[in-house]
Nucleic acid binder design. Structure first.
Lengths: 166, 166
DNA sequence: CGACCAGACGCAACATTGTTGCAATAACTT
DNA sequence: AAGTTATTGCAACAATGTTGCGTCTGGTCG
C-alpha cells in the first residue's frame, strides 16, 4: 500500500505535469464500465467492474498486490484477481507490463494508444511513469521476426526515491 | 536446456548475422578469466570462473536455469549460482536483465558498451537478441529524475518461434 | 417472473524463481 | 604450512503466479 501512495504523490506533483503524460480520464460510472465489459461479449461481474474502475482511476500502473490492498475489505479472491487481470489484458481493456522488480503491473487501456510506449521505470520503488516524449522509430528487424510492440524504457531513480535517499 | 539450444540455433543462423550484434569474443583462457576476477579484489573460485567463462562463450543472455543446465554434471549449488551471478553483476563483469517472462538473464560485460541497449525480446521463448541498430537519443526527463540506463526493446516473436507455430 | 447453464468464482494445492541464516570449506596471504 | 576470512552448500523460507475442480451467478429465454 505504501508503494501505491508514493506513486500517487509523485505523479501529482505540479513540476512533473509538463512532462508526464498522465492516463487520467474522468472516472466513468459503474454502468459505463459494465457496458464496456459487456461489449467484449463477457459477463460484467462485480470483480471485473471494480478492478477496471480502479485501474481507470489510478494514475499509474498497479501491481496485483497494490490492487488487492486498494480493494481493502471485501477483497476478491487472490486467484480471481489474477484471472480478472489476465482477462482484462487479453480482452484489450488493460495493459500488462513488468516493472523493475519483475512484477506485473496493470493499467487501463486508453484510446489513441501507440505501438510504441515511452516509460520511465524506477529501479528503486519499481514505479512506472508514462512519458509524453515522442517515441523513436523502430529499426528494421532480422528476417522472420514479427513485431508486436516497442518499448522505450528509461531506467533510473524517480524524483521521490532520489529525494528519499539524500 | 531446450531453450538454451533453441537460442543458440537461432542466433547462429546466417540470415541473422547481418542485423544481430553478437557479443562473440574469443573464448578467454581459464587463467585470463581468473585474473579478471582477481582484479576486482575477490577470490577466483571455480564457480565464478566457470560461470563467467560460460557467459563469455554464450551468444545470448542466459537465465539461471539455463546456466545450471549448461554446467551439467558437477553442477554448482543453486544458491551459490545465484550468488555468483549477483556478484558478477555487482562487480560489473556481467549484466543482469529481465526477459519477457520476468526471469533474470545474465550476459558477460563487453568493452565499449553504451548507456542505451537495443534488444529484441521474444514473447514466446523469452529469448533476448541484441540488435545492431543505432539507439535513439533519450528524451528529457522530469525534474529530479536520474537516468542510469536506457532500453529500446522491440517485442514480438522471433524467427524460430514464428516458424515453429506455422 | 423463474429456470437454465456456460462462464466466472473461490478454495486448496502446487510451481517457479529468488532470498536468508548458518555452519563448513577453501582461496589467498604471510 | 598455518591462519583468515571470503565463499560455499544445505535447509528452510518468501513472493509471485498457476492449475484443478466443485460451486455459484449473470444474462438469456421460455
Amino acid at each position: 500500500m505504501l508503494r501505491l501512495v508514493v506513486s500517487y504523490a509523485l505523479i501529482s506533483r505540479p513540476t512533473l505535469a509538463g512532462t508526464l503524460a498522465l492516463p487520467f480520464q474522468p472516472s466513468p460510472s459503474v454502468d459505463a464500465v459494465a457496458e464496456q465489459i459487456r461489449r467484449t461479449g463477457a459477463r460484467a461481474t462485480p470483480a471485473r467492474i471494480r478492478v477496471l474502475q480502479l485501474l481507470r482511476d489510478a494514475p499509474a500502473a498497479l501491481t496485483h498486490n497494490e490492487i488487492e490492498s486498494a480493494l481493502g475489505a471485501r477483497a476478491i479472491d487472490r486467484v480471481t484477481l489474477y484471472r480478472v487481470l489476465d482477462w482484462l489484458a487479453e480482452s484489450g481493456l488493460a495493459h500488462k507490463n513488468t516493472d523493475a522488480h519483475r512484477v506485473y503491473r496493470f493499467s487501463a487501456a486508453a484510446a489513441g494508444e501507440h505501438l510504441t510506449h515511452v516509460h520511465f521505470r524506477c529501479e528503486d520503488c519499481g514505479g512506472v511513469f508514462c512519458l509524453a516524449a515522442a517515441p523513436p522509430a523502430a529499426p528494421a528487424l532480422p528476417l522472420g521476426f514479427s513485431l508486436s510492440r516497442v518499448d522505450f524504457d528509461l531506467r533510473g531513480r524517480c524524483a521521490g526515491c532520489c529525494a528519499a535517499s539524500s
